[in-house]
Design a protein around this nucleic acid. Structure first.
Lengths: 221, 221
DNA sequence: GCAAAAGTGTTCCCCCTACACCCATGA
DNA sequence: TCATGGGTGTAGGGGGAACACTTTTGC
């Protein structure tokens, strides 16, 4: 009945400049001092795992209402932390763009980094991050979670650009439009539309109430 | 930096008499003495989480080579175990039928119970089991893991009966046969076939090498 | 032969793809 | 009126659902 330390680590993803980014912090203290790492911290004595993840999310990025937060997986290999036996429960967060890169962070320098250009990471965080990105990619296929990367009201084109960034591909705008608007519960029209930009104004939508997409929106092939 | 106890719990599923069953133990000691629960135990000082799950699998059911073993999720609500702060990492195991119901078990009375007729469970195990069953149902859609419930060599009809038991539905035998045999990497023919049963002998297959089914095999609708 | 189970062929339809085309705005 | 991006129509094809039909065994 060994004694363990339990932490939560966050894979926070967002879309910036059309590319998928992850929030990384620079570690201010050993071990791995100066290295990049996923944000995270200890679970408090009377705190549930999900609550700890939500608290870290607020502390690291000043986020009160993430687009989506879900448990990813747990990692507890004996040698993964030189300080001792530490099990970390990783969470995946999907966020709308640009919630102040470092707002309220208690870690030295938090910043958004493109997942296509990652530095070396502390601990086993590279593997955790890879698992998180793959989870996000898969979830876009059969859930309406792409909208979790968007602001409260968004256009179909914005939603499509989320898919293109996460999957690193291009999609046909016309077919994507039809698919998104005709799939029950994916998006709901607000009646409002954009203005003041080039081209025809785009209708604005909010997230629909569905939890799964039926039929799914499959990648490539 | 609270101190935690870490356990692994197993959702072990198999098919018996055409129905999905789970292995439950009867707790011999408090808390929840006498109640049904998922098999599980403490993670040892120098043991990885997955290794602990594999060890418990062997101890509880005498299984050396499960059809499949994967991490499910972690549960750590503050009051989930009256003994203190216990985080459990749940694993999902899919097994071929009938590996001696209680062989080698160190818990009082382990037995296979139909998931359609569950008793009340100790701790938060009812929720963990529900998550495991849902994971299994979803995984059959887009991976070849149905074969993990089958013996090393199996017929297409046996594989179909796995899907029917897990999804609690019926499938068209002819369409399922075509789908299973024509999907790349799902099953591999052995050249052998059954004999001594009613009707035309069935060809025997082994698990294919694919990790995902493309296109997937979707439920109902 | 008959029953039973395995396996094949065929038809219909839905949905995905590709792409031609129209719509509404800013400059 | 042109450029730009939003949105609709339509034809072709792949795959699933339904089911008629053939094959191969035990009795």
């Amino acid at each position: 009945m060994t004694s363990f330390t339990v932490t939560v680590d966050l894979v926070m993803l967002t879309i910036r400049q059309g590319a998928l980014h992850v929030l990384l912090i620079r570690r201010a203290i050993p071990p791995y001092q100066g290295a990049s790492a996923l944000p995270g911290g200890f679970v408090l004595p009377e705190e549930d795992l999900g609550a700890a993840a939500a608290r870290e999310l607020a502390e690291e990025a000043g986020i009160a209402a993430p687009g989506h937060l879900e448990q990813l997986a747990s990692y507890g290999a004996p040698g993964r932390d030189p300080r001792g036996r530490v099990v970390t429960v990783a969470y995946l967060a999907l966020l709308p763009d640009a919630p102040a890169p470092t707002a309220g962070s208690d870690a030295a320098g938090a910043e958004w980094v493109p997942v296509a250009a990652l530095p070396a990471l502390a601990f086993d965080h590279a593997g955790i991050l890879a698992d998180g990105v793959e989870r996000a990619r898969a979830k876009l296929e059969y859930t309406p979670l792409g909208a979790a990367f968007c602001p409260p009201e968004f256009t179909i084109a914005e939603l499509r650009q989320v898919y293109e960034a996460v999957w690193d591909t291009t999609l046909d705008p016309r077919n994507f439009h039809r698919k998104a608007t005709s799939t029950e519960g994916f998006v709901e029209p607000t009646g409002r539309s954009t203005a003041g930009e080039r081209g025809r104004p785009a209708a604005l939508y909010t997230r629909g109430s569905a939890t799964v997409l039926s039929p799914p929106l499959l990648r490539s092939r």
